[in-house]
Amino acid sequence: MPLLEVNNLRVDLPVEAGTLHAVRGIDFHVERGEMLCLVGESGCGKSMTSLALMGLLPRKARLTADRLQFDGIDLTMLSERRRSDLRGARMSMIFQEPMTALNPAYTLGNQLCEGLIRHRGVSRQEARERAIYLLERVGISAAKDRLNQYPHQLSGGLRQRVMIAMALMCEPDLIIADEPTTALDVTIQAQILRLLRELQQEFGTAVIFITHDLGVVARIADRVAVMYAGEVIESAPTPALYANPAHPYTRGLLSCIPAPGKTPPGSRLQAIPGVVPSLVGHVEGCAFRNRCPQAQPTCERTPPLMSLSGDHRARCHYADRPVPAPRPPETIS
């Protein structure tokens, strides 16, 4: 049984102009010890999905799901109290902006130890020992002194490491990391990703890693789910996705980043023309069809989730067969 199973998860938000369908019926699962990457354009519902899993959605948001099971526990049925226990002890989250997730008024030691003391009932001394061990593991020197420092005394990269250590304190089964490296520069990003991957394999933790950087995904993910306009439009093991992207959006994404050695410098890049549709109100048909280079009249109907080889699925009418009358792909600057 997978650690996390999500079936037909929907998140609706009332907004001024009607209802915003931020997440529109997504399915995925996460195995124990696996790294699943959620990729997609800004606003496609990545953060809403993670907040839904953590039970941290905005108050006005409405969540429905056919199935939302974590290790056999039905998350939709849980009381807020049990939910909160679960959140601290078995699922934890790493946020994009560590400064907003760390409380500026408490020392790092306090914040690191609090969860462990509350959820596991260990003594303060034991908690401190584990905190020091983990800070050292995430590459922070002089860990003992750091425990008495406040978040603002650390650089962005160090804070993000502290967040990782904090997420690991209770040895959770699942960590959700929402764009943990987007705000950092490349050298620090590489260090943090390496660390996360190592620790994850060492402790056997499952990770849902949210990003929009396909380079990052390629290097760390076991499996990838590509989201577009509130839906998972393709999911596959990483090598399969990069080798045979089945959905036109995935193909577009992969071809619009310049690849050194493949795209000649200074040449035109393939771009995906157009913009993401509004998710307010009812969305009918394939949400990508106004930007899709191979859209057909059929695409006015909502495409089913096609099963391709093995664990590879794509939500496109033409994921497994050629388009009837292929149009040349347009490149619009």
């Binding site: 590459g139 590489a190 380079g215 290097r219 760390i220 993910a221 990483t238």
Partner: peptide
């Protein structure tokens, strides 16, 4: 060199390189 090494190109299977820089920003 460290900068170039830490650029993650979309090539699956390569993993995240160890760029060997300390964290002493």
């Amino acid at each position: 060199r460290a900068l170039l090494d830490s650029a993650l190109t979309p090539e699956p299977g390569l993993g995240v390189p160890d760029i060997g820089l300390g964290d002493a920003t």
